[in-house]
Design a protein around this nucleic acid. Structure first.
Length: 262
DNA sequence: ATGGTAGTTTGACTA
């Protein structure tokens, strides 16, 4: 079975329904995982997705903030979610494919501006969320799992525009990177994007605050596709659709793709 | 050190 999967922080599904539909029409992934729907479940537009053949979905919306979804043209079962940190945030959803492969879609907290747990509640939340993921994955002994999402951490030197200048900037601090590594180890996960594209700068997000984002190219790789080691060697053809950042009224994140021969 | 932009709950929150 071939599986083409894409993850995208869409930053409002209602504002960017057109973008999602044109992406699906052109690239025809089997599954798209979305983050930051910024809409309640009942307000997420689904009719055009259905028309495009995406008849299966698990949507966990939320008013104003967060919101995640798995949209699929192949059947999904065992829809589930975890309420990490018990805040009621819609930051996780999961589902299973007919071949037993599990899809996990995450929107990890951004963590605010100050990289200090005592001074910044949002940073504490981010670290707590990562720790809960780790504990959860140790308990579950995962296999045949693909984890995707906006993890809000750029772990490698070449995942940011300046490693030295971002060491104290939330998303690239050693404490976050170490926490994320522990999550990956606990779940036996491999970073598929970097396995397929080991060398060179790789970004999936460029801030809205830079009017000249393309020229300055101060990006970060915050969006990830991971797979457990038992299926990691089945992944290929990873790519990041940088051009989506130039589309009209774009999300600040771009789609990240991978394919699997399962 | 500061401010820059965008989206949503129209004003202050999030990123």
């Amino acid at each position: 079975m071939k599986l083409k999967i894409v993850t995208w922080n869409i930053n409002s599904i209602r504002l960017r329904e057109d973008h999602v539909c044109s992406l699906l029409a052109k690239y025809k992934p089997d599954i798209i995982c979305l983050q930051e729907l910024k809409a309640p479940t009942e307000s997420v537009p689904i009719s055009r997705l259905e028309e495009l053949g995406y008849k299966y979905r698990v949507i966990r919306g939320q008013k104003s903030y967060n919101g995640v979804a798995i949209i699929s043209r192949i059947p999904l079962s065992d829809a589930d979610y975890c309420d990490y940190c018990l805040k009621g945030d819609a930051r996780h959803v999961s589902a299973r494919l007919s071949n037993g492969v599990e899809i996990q879609n995450f929107y990890i907290p951004a963590g605010g501006d100050i990289p200090n747990r005592e001074e910044n509640k949002k940073f504490a939340h981010k670290l707590d969320f990562l720790n809960e993921m780790k504990i959860n994955f140790i308990k579950k002994r995962l296999s045949k799992t693909i984890l995707v999402g906006d993890l809000n951490i750029a772990p490698l030197e070449h995942d940011v525009w300046s490693h030295s200048q971002l060491l104290k900037v939330v998303s690239h601090t050693p404490i976050e990177i170490e926490a994320l590594q522990k999550v990956a180890e606990a779940g036996n996960f491999i970073d598929i994007t970097r396995k397929n594209i080991p060398d060179g700068l790789l970004y999936s997000w460029w801030s809205y605050r830079s009017p000249n984002w393309s020229m300055s190219n101060r990006g970060r790789r915050l969006d990830h596709i991971w797979a457990t080691s038992d299926i990691a060697m089945k992944a290929h053809s990873s790519f990041i659709l940088k051009e989506a950042r130039s589309w009209e009224r774009p999300s600040d994140h771009v789609p990240v793709f991978a394919e699997f021969n399962l």
